[in-house]
């Protein structure tokens, strides 16, 4: 498993476009929002979180768009199937590498921006924890979406996996609200961590079945 993890990290490190692109776009989105409409700082504090949440949703979709299509197109998926007979390990490795290299930085950017908009320094790490847990959930769900529509364009992936991502967003929203009102943070974050772990454990099984169907 470690070997798969290092192989995936090796591949992603060399593909700057897939790694850095989403992060830059996220920064752009978070900057563009306040510029587009001139809002008073007071209002901004109140609903800036929804901008961060929506951009997180959008960017995590963008980041996982070609997570499998590259290996599918150039035939490496077939080679893996010969050795491994199952894609569970490679899928888990891919998702974790993407979360580590793209998800966590995204959460970092999100919490920095939330800090710039009225969140005190003490609460910024809380935001970071919640955002990174939710990137884990979102990456799993959207990886499933991109596995479904592996070479048929990403629109199909979104239509299929967005309904599954929305409950996660509601959970994230609930978590963010606890930070704003300052209580109940621990319970919600533990709940989210639980959901994230279950999803991370189960989703690769479904994705591996999907990939096998594609290879048929």
């Amino acid at each position: 498993m470690i070997n798969f993890f290092s192989l995936e990290a090796f591949k992603l490190r060399h593909k700057l476009r897939a790694w850095l692109g989403p992060l830059l776009i996220m920064i752009l989105v978070l900057i563009a929002f306040p510029l587009s409409i001139d809002i008073s700082q007071y209002d901004l504090n109140k609903f800036y979180f929804s901008v961060i949440v929506v951009s997180l949703l959008m960017i995590s979709f963008l980041a996982t768009e070609s997570i499998f299509s590259e290996d599918y197109e150039d035939g490496s998926l077939e080679q893996i199937h010969l050795e491994e007979k199952d894609f569970y390990k490679i899928t888990l490795a891919k998702i974790l590498v993407h979360v580590l290299f793209i998800g966590i930085p995204m959460a970092l950017i999100g919490s920095i921006f939330s800090f710039a908009n009225g969140v005190s320094l003490a609460e910024a790490p809380k935001i970071f924890v919640i955002l990174s847990i939710s990137t884990l959930i979102l990456f799993n769900v959207f990886a499933f979406g991109s596995a479904l529509s592996i070479n048929k364009g990403s629109m199909l992936g979104v239509v299929a996996s967005l309904p599954l991502a929305l409950p996660a967003i509601v959970l994230l929203g609930r978590g963010v609200r606890t930070v704003q009102y300052g209580q109940g943070f621990f319970e919600v974050s533990v709940l989210m961590a639980g959901v994230a772990l279950i999803v991370t454990a189960l989703m690769p099984i479904i994705i591996s079945a999907t990939l096998k169907t594609h290879l048929e």
Binding site: L148, S149, K152, L156, V159, A160, P163
Partner: peptide
């Protein structure tokens, strides 16, 4: 809608 689009694109 997602189910129908998924089926029709293969």
């Amino acid at each position: 809608l997602g189910i129908i689009t998924l089926h029709s694109s293969f």
